[in-house]
Amino acid sequence: MKLPSLALASAALALAASPVLAGPTFERATAPLMGDESEAVGAPILLLAALGAAVVAGAVVVASGDDDDNPVSP
């Protein structure tokens, strides 16, 4: 009975200690941007809005589907 308890304790210790041992070993670097450029400048907002509207419309259609819950067996 001691072996499962020991295995559980060592697994819990490993899970708790892994973020501490990993620690920040390097300085985080940022991506270089040229001038005032941004990745969101050319984003197709209209396409994203249409896709979102289609997803919402699809969810409404699925949710309001056929409510035929009558029993089939006599």
Rank of each mutant, 00 (worst) to 15 (best):
L6Y: 03
V20K: 07
P32S: 10
G42Y: 02
T25Q: 14
A29L: 10
E39F: 11
T30H: 05
G35D: 02
V41D: 12
L8I: 14
M1D: 13
D69M: 06
D66M: 01
A57T: 15
L21Q: 13
A7F: 04
A12W: 03
G42C: 05
S73P: 04
A12R: 05
A11Q: 05
P24Q: 13
A12H: 02
S10P: 00
P4W: 00
V60C: 14
P4K: 02
P19A: 06
F26H: 12
L6T: 11
A12K: 07
G58V: 02
V56G: 00
N70A: 14
L46K: 07
A17N: 11
V56S: 00
A29P: 03
V56R: 00
V72L: 08
A9W: 01
A63G: 14
D68T: 10
V61I: 14
V60H: 03
A43P: 00
E27S: 09
V62L: 13
V20H: 05
A29T: 14
A22N: 10
V20E: 11
L15W: 05
I45N: 06
V72P: 00
A54C: 12
V55R: 07
G65C: 01
A40N: 06
G35R: 00
P71Y: 04
P74V: 08
A14G: 10
M34W: 07
A63E: 01
L33V: 15
A7R: 05
A16Q: 06
S5Q: 11
D69F: 04
K2W: 03
D68A: 11
L8Y: 01
I45C: 05
T30F: 06
M34G: 09
D67W: 09
K2F: 08
S5K: 08
V20L: 13
L6M: 09
L46C: 04
S73Q: 13
E39M: 09
N70F: 06
T30I: 04
D36F: 02
S73L: 04
P74Y: 08
V61S: 05
D36L: 06
G23P: 00
A49P: 02
A40R: 03
L8K: 01
V56Y: 01
R28K: 15
A43R: 08
A12P: 01
A22M: 08
L13Q: 08
S18F: 04
F26D: 15
T30W: 03
A7L: 11
L3N: 11
L3Q: 14
E27L: 10
A29K: 09
D66W: 03
A59P: 01
E37Y: 04
L21E: 14
G58W: 01
A7D: 08
L8E: 01
D68F: 02
G42Q: 09
M1Y: 08
D69R: 02
A14P: 02
L15I: 07
P71M: 02
S73W: 02
S5T: 11
L47V: 03
R28M: 13
G58C: 07
D66F: 02
S10C: 10
I45T: 15
S18C: 12
P44E: 12
L48M: 12
T30G: 09
